[in-house]
């Protein structure tokens, strides 16, 4: 349990993120923890050296709405989630199609725990950036 933590759901996530933006918070990063049956996705925001965290519990096959329309800087880290955990992130501002950090020959969704069969992330054949 982190300090300043607020649980959110997929429906309230975008509203809460937008609220942080209006309060003058700076986007820091997104952390994903694979709990085995669900993902814990933590959104970290910072204001005056104090972190504010949103915790989203996501089912293994659920889509994740992108916050890149609110904080553009999140686009890189959301692509990373898509690559490493195979989480389908919707409405990304720049979509690398699962080829942000990984390439052909790399394992698919390597940080996802193996107990559940991994979902196929969307892939383009040539690995090109769309």
């Amino acid at each position: 349990m982190l300090n300043n933590e607020l649980p959110v759901t997929r429906d309230t996530l975008l509203n809460e993120v937008a609220a942080r933006r209006h309060q003058g918070y700076r986007f820091v990063t997104v952390t994903c923890v694979d709990l085995g049956d669900r993902f814990d996705i933590l959104y970290h925001f910072d204001k005056d050296y104090v972190l504010y965290n949103l915790r989203l519990s996501l089912g293994r096959t659920e889509n994740l709405p992108s916050i890149s329309s609110i904080f553009f800087a999140a686009v890189l880290v959301e692509n990373e989630l898509k690559d490493l955990f195979g989480i389908p992130v919707t409405d990304l501002a720049i979509d690398y199609g699962g080829r942000f950090l990984l390439s052909e020959g790399s394992p698919v969704a390597p940080q996802r725990k193996p107990d559940a069969p991994p979902a196929q992330p969307a892939q383009t054949k040539d690995g090109a950036v769309k």
Binding site: V28, T29, T31, C32, V33, F72, A73, L76
Partner: peptide, 24 residues
Amino acid sequence: YLKGNGAKNLERMRIRTPTFANLA
């Protein structure tokens, strides 16, 4: 971000480095 679960191995380590933030 560090998460331990009582074992000698950590459960999760996540690193956000400054250059990652400065790419945007």
